[in-house]
Write a protein that binds this DNA or RNA. Structure first.
Lengths: 155, 155
DNA sequence: TTGAGATCAAGAATTATTCTAAATAAAATG
DNA sequence: CATTTTATTTAGAATAATTCTTGATCTCAA
């Protein structure tokens, strides 16, 4: 059902307007969404703003925030939080965790092992309703780890 | 080894000063730590500040931030982040996740099921080093769920 | 075309947090 | 014990991300 939604959005992206699941697909919203899809590197709101401005110079930062918020609320993108850093945004709707490298600051999507479920390891509180689960990891990526460590790089 | 550390801190808390694993246990640091131990409800820095001020009226917010940062770095407390909310602090050193209720805003510690490991469900990137893993859940707690829903409360 | 409601833009406001600089306290040295 | 050194605390300024406000603009439906 997620991929069905994807197709619908792609279709909308072709045209000029229309709605999507009650969400009006305005030029700005489409643009922001396209920016996220084009380079799936978990940009921050400011980075999305910079990229969006290259294609629509009139767009404002506030609008980018609005769009990201709207798209998140509609379930079309995910807001990614790692520690206290600025939020990042991600159009990968599959269940996944995030790993950020403390050196190069790249963010990686971490998928579930097949047949595994996140909730399976936690002693969840009985009677509670879990609406949202976020898993964030910080460390050093394979590339930065080992390689370059002795060069005394930035981190 | 964690509980050994605990005892040491408790001991220090009795006396006036001393060091602990290279960490100088100043009045302020002890106070902040005691505040966290006395009411283990995951207070924010501001809440810790308010409680600390009741016992040492001269303490400043900056110092509370300093102490929380120092204690976190020393591994004596954990900084808890859920979404974009203000950080909360927790002296529970066991591996656990956090669940925050969107209605009453209470934070619950969620333990691992016995014999389970967090990493077991994730397809971790080969060659990367994971230093830190944080699991945050949001939803409605057992108490707020079911009870009170029809009363049209705040959230 | 017109009116209502949604969305956008610009900039002000807010909030949590960090930084800075001076004052104080504690530890080390003689 | 007096002095020097170093770490910590304090108060307030600064920062950064995000949200809010207001007026303008757009879109939809009649």
């Amino acid at each position: 059902m997620v991929s069905k939604l994807r197709q619908d959005i792609a279709a909308k992206s072709e045209s000029d307007g229309g709605t999507l699941g009650g969400l009006r697909m305005t030029k700005q919203r489409k643009l922001v969404y396209d920016v996220l899809m084009d380079e799936r590197d978990h940009p921050t709101a400011t980075e999305v703003y910079i990229r969006s401005k290259q294609r629509m110079s009139s767009i404002s930062l506030a609008t980018v925030y609005n769009c990201l918020e709207t798209l998140s609320a509609a379930g079309l993108v995910k807001q990614v939080n790692v520690g206290r850093d600025a939020s990042r945004y991600c159009p990968n709707l599959a269940e996944h965790a995030h790993f950020i490298c403390a050196k190069c600051e790249q963010v990686f999507d971490i998928g579930l092992k097949s047949d595994k479920k996140v909730e399976s390891v936690w002693a969840l509180p009985i009677g509670a309703r879990i609406d949202h689960l976020e898993v964030a990891m910080k460390g050093v990526c394979a590339n930065c780890n080992g390689a370059g460590e002795e060069l005394g790089g930035k981190g």
